[in-house]
């Protein structure tokens, strides 16, 4: 016998464990791969310390400089909107907070459902906008690979299935919830092997960038 509830329990049980294991193994492997490469010693006399500059850049790169914003407002705004919307839904939806509590043993306060619902709807629209942009902007079209579209599809499906499940637009609900969890698991599984790694490595990259420039006296 195999029905929607068994599917849900499979995604909540064994598959979740497998996905999280692959994610943890893959991500750790990647991080170790990065850090073990190290950097050559730098003998040049520094102008300033690397650490504060690197830490600052980890945050400051989140906001585009005014010139870039003017030249690519769509890129910047839509990118911001969907990242924020996605993070809002991911980190502050009550069921997700409970999930984090369950897996990590700690969590934080959640946002009211209507807020998350709104954020999710906006995220879906923004994601569609990013796809249209990717397909139409000459640069983005030129540099896009299959991976870019695959990652887009997975991210979009995660948000879409979440939205459908929340609004109970798919029956039976265990199927809807199971689909959402399955999509999220696919995302976890591919995360360490695709550009989704940037979720973590961005901060490393920004640190190195900020440190390199900061050492030379430029806050990047």
């Amino acid at each position: 016998m195999s029905g929607s509830m068994e599917f849900l329990l499979w995604t909540k049980g064994p598959l979740f464990n497998i996905a999280l294991a692959i994610f943890a193994i893959g991500l750790m492997a990647r991080l170790v791969e990065i850090f073990m490469l190290g950097r050559a010693p730098n003998y040049a006399e520094p102008r300033a310390h690397e650490w504060p500059a690197g830490l600052r850049t980890m945050l400051t790169r989140t906001v585009a400089d005014p010139g870039t914003f003017q030249r690519a407002p769509f890129n910047v705004v839509v990118g911001w909107v969907w990242h924020l919307g996605f993070l809002t839904a991911l980190l502050f939806f009550v069921p997700h907070v409970e999930l984090i509590q369950g897996v990590l043993g700690f969590a934080w306060p959640a946002l009211p459902n209507p807020v998350v619902d709104f954020a999710t709807a906006i995220t879906l629209l923004a994601l569609i906008a990013t796809l249209v942009h990717r397909l139409t902007h000459p640069v983005k079209r030129h540099i896009s690979t299959i991976e870019d579209y695959l990652v887009w599809a997975v991210v979009f499906m995660v948000v879409l299935t979440g939205y459908l499940a929340y609004h109970r637009l798919v029956e039976p609900y265990p199927l809807a919830l199971g689909m959402h969890i399955l999509c999220a698991e696919i995302l976890l599984i591919i995360l360490p092997f695709t550009k989704l790694t940037h979720i973590f490595t961005t901060f490393i990259a920004r640190w190195y960038n900020g440190a390199a420039f900061g050492r030379k006296g430029v806050q990047s």
């Binding site: 049980g13 509590q101 043993g105």
Partner: peptide, 12 residues
């Protein structure tokens, strides 16, 4: 809660 996975914990 419904959203909590069945068996996984921080140790795994």
């Amino acid at each position: 809660p419904v959203s909590v996975p069945l068996t996984l914990g921080p140790t795994t």
